[in-house]
Design a protein around this nucleic acid. Structure first.
Length: 382
DNA sequence: GAAGCGTGGGC
DNA sequence: TGCCCAAGCTT
């Protein structure tokens, strides 16, 4: 094949393209946004599926469309409501950017959905991949999509033995992706590539079932298992967090995180990292003072929760807190916030209505569900 | 280019 | 259990 003439090379390319499209026609999953390829639905699906497993993405997608069925509905929705729906999905900037983009389209374009790669790329939260995906899948624009699936497939087709994220490999992949795209078929082709990556050319490749295996160099050389080549990443960071619930007048204190921080726009109980050698009981008191000005004391410990995010491993020590009588600090209704944009005093039973990071959601649910026994039951009348 | 941003699933 | 993810974007 390496010495093939330009004519047979072109024929081989056409055969591979047809084989892929035929495979997609036979094996594509009936996903909800494939119903009519409505641009709004395609856009939402693409954002939701970023770094997210398909099954979870579909569940959130169905709920989302019930709540915000149109671009206009999303543009008019309160951010609180959108983040609450997104709760648990992670990467919350995706949800905040969806709102910003929807409002921009309504206000600056009169609601006319951006229909080209360039226009899409200009919206917040839409990068090269998503702009190509929406332009091709919703509007049949002839642009290739390059996501992790496509990178993996092409790294195997060409047997690329350098790290895929490096410039050289990226250029080879982009060039191959352009060549592979059959003009006028971008919607089917791009989805076919990603579907193939998800179902067949996965981390553990299933070469016997692959429609592209006749043209795959890694298959020929038996290196598919070792492609794509990844660069070693940083190891996990251990984090000890101390937090707790401060109750006063039958309500507990929560605060809303700043946008540019992790878990931006979500609600939490104040707290933070224990310093080196610092006991978590002391850390939670210090953090409350630093973040709210409140002087608090520890009534007891609910327990320890474990979690991870990105490359952090978290151990959260969670406490029951009350105001320390001798050092009042600011009045309960006037905290001095240094790590949050706003705060509320809410009844425990209403915590369910606030979007919280997964770790704090578990704590809140255990609190309101009485799963922390006597100490939890103490609270409503503390 | 590298790092930061979440979460739950699978092996 | 510990590690690697799963349809990336922003700074």
């Amino acid at each position: 094949m390496d010495n093939a003439s330009p004519l047979s090379r072109r024929e081989a390319l056409a055969q591979a393209q047809e084989a892929l499209l035929a495979w997609f026609g036979a094996h594509m999953r009936p996903l909800p946004w494939r119903r009519d390829y409505d641009p709004y639905r395609v856009w939402i699906s693409e954002i939701m599926l970023q770094q997210t497993q398909m099954e979870r993405g579909v569940q959130y997608f169905e709920r989302w469309m019930d709540a915000f069925p149109t671009l206009e509905a999303l543009a008019g929705a309160p951010e609180e409501e959108v983040l609450k729906l997104w709760e648990g999905l992670g990467y919350y900037a995706r949800a905040r950017n969806l709102i910003k983009a929807a409002r921009a389209v309504v206000q600056e374009r009169g609601g006319a959905f951006p229909a080209s790669f360039e226009e899409l790329r200009a919206l917040p939260g839409i990068g090269p991949y998503t702009a190509a995906a929406v332009a091709s899948i919703a509007f049949q624009e002839d642009v290739p999509c390059i996501d992790a699936n496509v990178e993996r497939i092409i790294a195997r087709l060409l047997d690329i033995d350098t790290p895929v994220k490096e410039k050289a490999a990226q250029e080879a992949i982009a060039e191959a992706a352009r060549l592979l795209l059959p003009r006028g078929r971008a919607r089917e082709h791009n989805q076919a590539m990603m579907e193939l990556g998800a179902l067949v050319c996965a981390r553990r490749p299933d070469c016997p079932r692959c429609p592209l295996s006749p043209w795959c160099l890694a298959r020929k050389r038996d290196t598919a298992e070792h492609r794509p080549v990844k660069k070693p990443g940083a190891g996990p960071v251990e984090l000890v967090l101390a937090s707790g619930v401060l109750l006063h007048g039958g309500r507990c204190f929560i605060q809303k995180r700043e946008e540019d921080d992790v878990w931006g726009g979500l609600w939490e109980f104040p707290g933070g990292c224990a310093e080196k050698g610092e006991r978590p009981e002391k850390a939670v008191v210090r953090e409350y003072l630093e973040e709210t000005g409140f002087a608090v004391k520890v009534l007891g410990k609910y327990g320890v929760l474990k979690s991870t995010y990105t490359n952090h491993r978290i151990t959260l020590h969670f406490y029951a807190l009350a105001f320390a009588g001798d050092k009042p600090g600011p009045a309960p209704e006037a905290p001095v916030l240094t790590a949050a944009s706003e705060s509320r005093w809410v009844p425990v039973k209403e915590l369910a209505g606030f979007a919280m990071p997964s770790l704090y959601r578990k704590a809140a649910d255990a609190l309101s569900g009485g799963q922390w026994g006597m100490l939890g039951l103490l609270f409503p009348k503390a």
